[in-house]
Design a protein around this nucleic acid. Structure first.
Lengths: 182, 182
DNA sequence: CCTTTCATGTAACGAGTTACATGATTGG
DNA sequence: CCAATCATGTAACTCGTTACATGAAAGG
């Protein structure tokens, strides 16, 4: 129920086309909200109908035309109203935890396969952490005096970093436990 | 796509009725997978049709009859096949992070409201951590020699604990940043 | 008496995923 | 020439949520 709001925040930070939004959702916004381009175009259309955003046609040479969206006053009001509502409890869906508990009912071959998967998963998240840290260094250098917006973006990024570090430590514990059955 | 599998794991750990499953999903399983009773009954019906689980009618006196489900051999095979598949990347949807970034575009009154919400949210998770720790003490005492199943359940619980601790620390950081705008 | 717990569902809707579809330009 | 990037969408489907519905017993 909050893809609309995530789009509003992203467009307030920087106006852009549906395509650009989709790319952002693969990157920075994707740290806390995922969405595919299909979903984004659909929601964006509804938001335009409801006057939460306004489009500006931009003809480009050498590239397809695009429609750049900005947040309207109505959109700002909608976002402000949403910010004042209670934070929804997260819907937790953690595949890996189910698998770890499920491993107790599988044979050694199954557990070996899971160990391999956990290792792969761990490597992925190690890489993600590296990218976060590189992004932090790039976007939030120590000596700069950040704006409010930057400080808030930074604290969200630090949350992502803390999460990944916690996850890596936990995955090591999981691997230790899984290997005990060898 | 894995509610079925979460149900299989839960029923392998302990057979039970739809109602009992719903209660478990509010508690321990709910740490890594959430589901309402409506969803559970619907999926359970499909699983029964596909012979992943078998039901045993249990007449009770003083209480409504119930249907206790156990995992069939087919169900075990399905679970084993799923355990061998790649872990799906999580779909991240973190309301609060969107709001924190959105706060940059709201007035002081909006930020004050968000601070209140974050505090409430923090208190909720502090309580959750307390319950996890109490559950850990109860279910996994130091001196016991645990089975494989218990060790795996324990490591999953430790993941929940690590997550909550990380979250609380991060929320403190968020509060510090939000209060700077006062 | 009234609320909570036990026990099971249906119906309608909203959100998210997967597959399909088109078409131009840039760079190797 | 072929793959990747830019740019926008439709259609079908699955999954998840909210609302509604019923009924009995236990406990205060």
């Amino acid at each position: 129920m909050a893809l609309e709001h995530a789009i509003l925040v992203s467009l307030l930070e920087q106006p852009g086309s549906g395509y650009e939004l989709a790319r952002r959702f693969e990157r920075s916004i994707g740290r806390f909200w995922t969405a595919t381009h299909q979903q984004i175009y659909r929601v964006l259309k509804r938001m335009e109908t409801d006057d939460w955003v306004v489009a500006l046609e931009v003809g480009q040479d050498g590239r397809p035309d695009k429609r750049t969206f900005s947040v309207s006053d109505t959109g700002r009001d909608v976002l402000a109203a949403w910010l004042r509502q209670p934070v929804q409890p997260e819907a937790v869906r953690h595949d890996l935890a189910v698998k770890v508990r499920g491993a107790a009912f599988d044979d050694p071959a199954g557990r070996a396969a899971l160990i391999g998967e956990v290792e792969r998963y761990r490597a992925e998240h190690e890489e993600l952490l590296t990218r976060y840290l590189a992004g932090e260094k790039r976007d939030f250098p120590d000596d700069a005096a950040p704006t409010t917006g930057q400080r808030l973006q930074h604290v969200v990024l630090r949350g992502g970093i803390a999460y990944e570090r916690m996850l890596l430590d936990w995955l090591d514990e999981v691997l230790t436990e899984l290997r005990k059955e060898a």
